[in-house]
Design a protein around this nucleic acid. Structure first.
Lengths: 235, 235
DNA sequence: CGATGACCGGATTCGAAATCTGGTCACAGC
DNA sequence: GCTGTGACCAGATTTCGAATCCGGTCATCG
């Protein structure tokens, strides 16, 4: 890794740390610079604005999640199924405080970023990936055909949102694994078909899905580097 | 209806109207009094505090929803099933602006009430009702037995929350009926059994469930009248 | 005796001054 | 030359005391 990128990483590390400790609202560019051991101007050699810096902190975290999902898919083809994706994502998010803040729309930690459309490029790319994935799985009869892709997408989105945002009705919350199980079962029963249990069927789509995710990863990284978040434009 | 209660209703009407038009934060007790055609002191003959007044606006709205559900159950025993409850509730909530604000945690309309534990008595009663209902339906094998009641409760809560709070991934939102369908299907597949299609099985539980709801309605009304929201204590 | 609105004090808002901070850029160091 | 920096600027934010507002009470009135 070139030294410039290493330094960018150090800045992101410092920013991530401070955002978690103080909340994005209280974190100043100067403090990030101090903690990263660089001058303030240097931050702006890497990031277009303060907000870009924070968005990229979240983007980097998201990329880590994508990598984890891809790794899981390589280990086990069943990980391409929505139910397992949802389970892995849920547990991975709980493990990463910044993603937890993001998924639970935590204003204390993320400030305006929690609700703002700042992470919009991620949303759009994610939506595109989801549509592509659902279409493929439907073609392979791994997903039910008794409703439209549109409705399935809406349902998946709503169900997952609910598991991140719902405040448990009764005091004692469930263990993360139990909640993740409940989420996976719900999604399995909502959209998947029995064919999902056939290893052959899964093996057929797994490489394609892995490819889709890798392209998604690249698109995400590119959106960051070429987009409004980065100082260095590919000249 | 005694004239005192009629006046309380008028006050609630005025408060509901103003909250919707201006947002709870901007509504003063004096304005509510003016719009209800009474003196400010009169408000406090009926409600313990300003917040109580607003909570009771929401409570009244919720009672309306309960009545609607009970009516649906009387018309059609299938309405006792979680999937149909969820569908009816979803559509009824969309139709009532105040409940929509409540379920979507709309801070602009409800101010602190949106997040605050102000409506807590409602939560507790609702949780009790839900547990009771699930237990009954499980005993009649209308609900799956392949997971705990605890997990089913959590799942129902999360899924419904999601349908109220999720921002559609793609621009065009679904028609209310389509979304409600998706919600109902999801819940049906998540917790119900095929036995739910048998009219006889439904007819057996319907009266019991109706009774539970009516007791819930009374408990809710009582919590309001005897609780910290009302000036008139049953002496 | 039920209803009221003047009244009280704590909470909120206002506004201008003071401070802070995002972003720039002239310059220092290499 | 070229990279990295922090002094600098203007606009945003905070501060803080004064002014206003408003929830809640209760003496009074009909």
């Amino acid at each position: 890794m070139p030294p410039a990128e290493q330094r960018a990483e150090r800045i992101l590390d410092a920013a991530a740390d401070l955002v978690l400790r103080w909340g994005a609202k209280r974190v100043t560019v100067e403090e990030v610079a101090r903690h990263a051991g660089v001058g303030k101007g240097t931050i702006y050699l890497h990031f277009a604005t303060r907000e870009s810096l924070f968005v990229r902190v979240l983007m980097r975290e998201s990329l880590g999640l994508v990598d984890e999902l891809v790794a899981a898919m390589r280990r086990d083809p069943a990980a391409v199924l929505p139910a397992e994706q949802a389970r892995s994502t849920y547990l991975a998010v709980l493990r990463r405080p910044l993603l937890r803040a993001m998924f639970s729309r935590d204003i204390d930690v993320l400030g305006d970023l929690a609700t703002k459309t700042a992470a919009d490029p991620l949303r759009v790319l994610k939506a595109d990936l989801a549509v592509e994935l659902l279409r493929l799985l439907r073609e392979h009869r791994l997903l039910r055909a008794d409703t439209t892709l549109e409705v399935q997408l809406y349902t998946l989105n709503a169900v997952q949102t609910g598991f991140y945002l719902s405040v448990p009705l009764r005091a004692g919350s469930l263990a993360p694994e139990t909640a993740a199980d409940a989420l996976a079962r719900t999604i399995r029963d909502a959209v998947q078909t029995p064919r999902c249990a056939e290893p052959a069927a899964l093996a057929a789509v797994a490489p394609v899905v892995t490819g889709m995710y890798q392209r998604f990863r690249v698109a995400l990284a590119t959106a960051v580097t070429d987009g409004p978040y980065d100082r260095q434009r590919s000249s």
